[in-house]
Amino acid sequence: MATGGRRGAAAAPLLVAVAALLLGAAGHLYPGEVCPGMDIRNNLTRLHELENCSVIEGHLQILLMFKTRPEDFRDLSFPKLIMITDYLLLFRVYGLESLKDLFPNLTVIRGSRLFFNYALVIFEMVHLKELGLYNLMNITRGSVRIEKNNELCYLATIDWSRILDSVEDNYIVLNKDDNEECGDICPGTAKGKTNCPATVINGQFVERCWTHSHCQKVCPTICKSHGCTAEGLCCHSECLGNCSQPDDPTKCVACRNFYLDGRCVETCPPPYYHFQDWRCVNFSFCQDLHHKCKNSRRQGCHQYVIHNNKCIPECPSGYTMNSSNLLCTPCLGPCPKVCHLLEGEKTIDSVTSAQELRGCTVINGSLIINIRGGNNLAAELEANLGLIEEISGYLKIRRSYALVSLSFFRKLRLIRGETLEIGNYSFYALDNQNLRQLWDWSKHNLTITQGKLFFHYNPKLCLSEIHKMEEVSGTKGRQERNDIALKTNGDQASCENELLKFSYIRTSFDKI
C-alpha cells in the first residue's frame, strides 16, 4: 500500500482533458527560462521544448504516446526543470519506465491550478516501474492521483506527508504495488545497510526511497516546507523545498512566496507586481503582455491589467481597466465587458449561442446573426445582446428569417469595421425574408467608422429604411451602385405612401 494514499474509496472516473512563447529569463536562482504550460502528445517531438525550461508557468501534460519505446527515452533528460506552477499529468506514455532521468531536479509542483483537485496525476502508464522524482520536495496545493499503472512499484516507500501538507485526498490505487509483488529495495538494503531515512506512518517504520538508488530526502521537522541542505541544516524561511546553503534567500532552489532578481522575498516591493503567484514583474512586463494579447485571437491570451499590486489576466467583477495605466478602477454604474472572439468572429444561430455573449459591452471581433427560429426570440436576444455598444469588426445579418427588427441591439452605437466582410463591408444584410426595420432612427444613433453597407434580398425592408441608415451611420456616399439592390429590397412591402385627393359631386333626387 502506498504510504499516505487512500484505498478502496469510491472515486469519480478520471477524465483526461485534452506555445513556446518565453516569458522571460528567471535569473540567477533558476538555471534556465520560464516556459508556458505545455500539452505534449502523440510523439516526442515537442518534448524537446523543455530543454531550457527551469519553470513551467502553467501545467505540463505528457500523454497518448503509443509508439514510443524505452530506448526512445534513454537520452532524454531535462535537468534544468525545477518547478511547475500548476500540475504534472502523465497518461498512456508507452515505453517510459521512470522519471528519474527525465526530470531529475523537479523540486516543486505548486498546484496553482489543479487537474480535478490533483497536482500530480500518473494514470495508465503501462510501462512505468517507478516514479523516480527523487528531488520532489513540495506539492504546495492539491493532491496526488496514481492509478492503474500495472508495473509501478516504489510507492509504499514514499512518505507523501513530507511532500504535501495533507495526504487525506491522495488516491493511489490499482498499481502493481497493490499486489505486494514489488519487493522494493532501498539503497544499501541488499548489503544489509540502512542508507535512507525511515519514518513512521500508520504504525509502520519504513525506509523512504524513490528507487533502488535514490533515497527520499527527509528534512528535520523544524525546517517545515522550506527544505534543508545535504547536511540537514534548514533553508531560509522564504525558500521552498530545498537550498544549497542554509538561511540564505539567494540560495533557495525555489521560493515559498515570490522570486525577485535572484532572491526569494515575502512580497513584491514597489515598483514590482505579483505575477502568477510566484514571481515579481515590473510595469513594462505587464504592459507588454497586455499589448501582445490586445489584437491576438490565441486562446488563453489575456490583456493583463494591474489590481491590488498584482498583474492579473482581467479586472475583477465591479472594476474596469483604465487604459492609460492598466489599473483596475471601480465602475460607475454597470461595468464594461470586452469579449474577445477566439477566431475573430462568432455566429449567433440560437439563443444558446447568444447567451455566451451575455453582459458583453464591447465585441472584439465580428458578429454573424443567422437565426431561423426560436421561442420568445426578441426578448431572449435583447437579454443577451442588448448591452453590446461596440463591435470592432463587422455585423452580418444573414438568412435570419425569424427577425423582424434589429432593435434587440438596443445599445449598439459603434461598428468600427477594423475587419470587413469580403474585404469591403462593415454591415452586411443578406436574404432576411421578414426583416422590416433596422432601428427606430428617431431614437437610435449608430456610427460606422469604416467599410460599406450591403443589402440584398431583404424583400420587406424598404429602401427608405436603408437610406436612413446611410445618413445616420455616416456611410452615405461610400456605397457603390450594386451594394444596395434596388429590386430585391422592399419588393414585397408597401414602401411608397402617396396622399390621394378626392373630389365629389353631391346629387339628390331633384338636383344634379
Score class of each variant (00 low, 15 high):
Ser296Asn: 14
Pro249Cys: 03
Asn43Phe: 04
Ser296Phe: 13
Val206Tyr: 03
Cys315Phe: 03
Tyr259Leu: 05
Glu314Gly: 05
Thr107Ala: 07
Phe73Ser: 04
Asn325Thr: 04
Pro220Asn: 07
Asn135Cys: 05
Gly203Trp: 05
Leu332Ser: 01
Leu174Arg: 13
Asp261Asn: 09
Ile109Val: 10
His214Ala: 14
Tyr94Cys: 12
Leu240Val: 05
Val265Met: 07
His48Ile: 07
Leu96Trp: 02
Ile62Trp: 02
Asn295Gln: 08
Leu88Ser: 01
Lys80Val: 04
Cys153Asn: 02
Asp178Val: 12
Trp210Phe: 12
Val126Leu: 15
Asn295Tyr: 13
Trp278Ile: 04
Ile139Gln: 01
Met321Val: 15
Ala198Val: 06
Gly188Ser: 09
Arg279Gln: 15
Ile62Asp: 00
Leu240His: 14
Phe103Asn: 00
Gly95Ala: 08
Ile306Glu: 03
Cys215Leu: 07
Cys223Pro: 02
His226Phe: 14
Ser166His: 07
Leu155Trp: 11
Leu90Ile: 08
Ile109Cys: 00
His290Gln: 14
Phe285Tyr: 03
His290Trp: 11
Asn179Gln: 08
Arg298Gly: 12
Ser77Asp: 03
Val305Ala: 11
Val167Ala: 11
Ser161Leu: 11
Gly183Cys: 12
Thr107Glu: 04
Met38Ala: 05
His307Trp: 14
Arg256Tyr: 08
Cys186Phe: 09
Lys191Leu: 06
Leu81Tyr: 00
Arg256Met: 06
Gly111Leu: 02
Pro79Glu: 08
Ser166Tyr: 09
Gln276Thr: 11
Leu136Asn: 00
Pro31Ser: 15
Asn322Gln: 13
Gly132Arg: 01
Ile185Met: 09
Ser296Val: 07
Ser161Asp: 04
Ile146His: 00
His274Leu: 09
Lys176Ser: 08
Cys215Tyr: 09
Cys331Asn: 10
Ala198Pro: 11
Thr107Phe: 05
Asn257Leu: 03
Lys129Thr: 14
Pro31Ile: 09
Leu174His: 15
Leu164Met: 14
Gln245His: 13
Asp288Thr: 04
Arg298Met: 04
Ala119Tyr: 00
Ile40Leu: 07
Thr221Ala: 10
Cys223Gly: 02
Val144Arg: 01
Cys293Lys: 03
Thr199Tyr: 05
Gly318Phe: 06
Asn202Ile: 03
Val200Ala: 12
Tyr87Gln: 00
Ile139Val: 08
Asn175Trp: 12
Leu131Gln: 02
Cys243Thr: 00
Ile185Glu: 03
Leu99Cys: 04
Cys331Ser: 03
His28Ala: 06
Glu71Ser: 11
Cys234Phe: 02
Val34Ile: 04
Cys228Thr: 02
Glu130Val: 05
Pro336Thr: 05
Ile62Gly: 01
Glu231Gly: 15
Leu332Val: 03
Lys217Tyr: 05
Cys196Trp: 01
Asp248Gln: 08
Val206Ala: 04
Val144Ser: 05
Val305Tyr: 03
Asn282Gln: 10
Gln245Asn: 12
His290Arg: 03
Leu326Trp: 04
Phe73Ile: 14
Pro246Arg: 06
Ala156Ile: 10
Met38Asn: 11
Asn242Ile: 06
Leu89Ala: 02
Ala156Pro: 12
Thr194Cys: 02
Pro79Arg: 06
Cys255Met: 01
Ala119Gln: 01
Asn138Met: 13
Arg41Tyr: 00
Leu63His: 10
Ser143Gln: 13
Pro220Phe: 02
Asp75Glu: 12
His28Met: 06
Arg141Asp: 15
Trp160Gly: 01
Ile56Ser: 01
Val144Lys: 01
Thr320Trp: 09
Lys224Glu: 14
Gln303Leu: 09
Ala156Glu: 03
Leu106Ser: 00
Pro249Tyr: 03
Phe103Leu: 03
Lys67Met: 08
Ser161Tyr: 11
Ile146Ala: 06
Pro334Gly: 06
Leu50Glu: 00
Val173Tyr: 03
Ile139His: 01
Met65His: 07
Gln61Pro: 00
Ile84Thr: 00
Ser213Trp: 05
Val173Cys: 15
Gly241Asn: 04
Ile56Gly: 00
Cys215Arg: 15
Phe123Ser: 15
Val121Ala: 05
His214Val: 12
Leu327Asn: 10
Thr85Phe: 02
Thr140Ala: 11
Leu60Ile: 04
Lys176Pro: 10
Lys292Pro: 05
Pro334Gln: 09
Leu96Lys: 01
Arg162Asn: 15
Asp169Arg: 12
Met137Glu: 08
Pro336Ser: 06
Arg298Ile: 11
Phe103Thr: 01
Ser296Ala: 12
Asp165Ser: 06
Asn43Tyr: 06
Asp165Glu: 14
Ala230Leu: 03
Ile40Gly: 00
Arg162Thr: 06
Asp261Tyr: 15
Tyr30Thr: 06
His48Glu: 14
Pro334Met: 15
Lys80Asn: 13
Thr189Gln: 08
Cys239Asp: 00
Pro36Asp: 01
Leu326Thr: 04
Asn202Lys: 07
Ile56Cys: 02
Ala254Asp: 14
Lys217Ala: 15
Asp159Val: 06
Asp169Ser: 05
Pro79Phe: 03
Gln204Gly: 15
Gly232Ala: 06
Asn322Thr: 05
Thr85Arg: 13
Glu124Gly: 03
Pro249Leu: 07
Leu289Tyr: 13
Phe116Trp: 14
Pro36Asn: 04
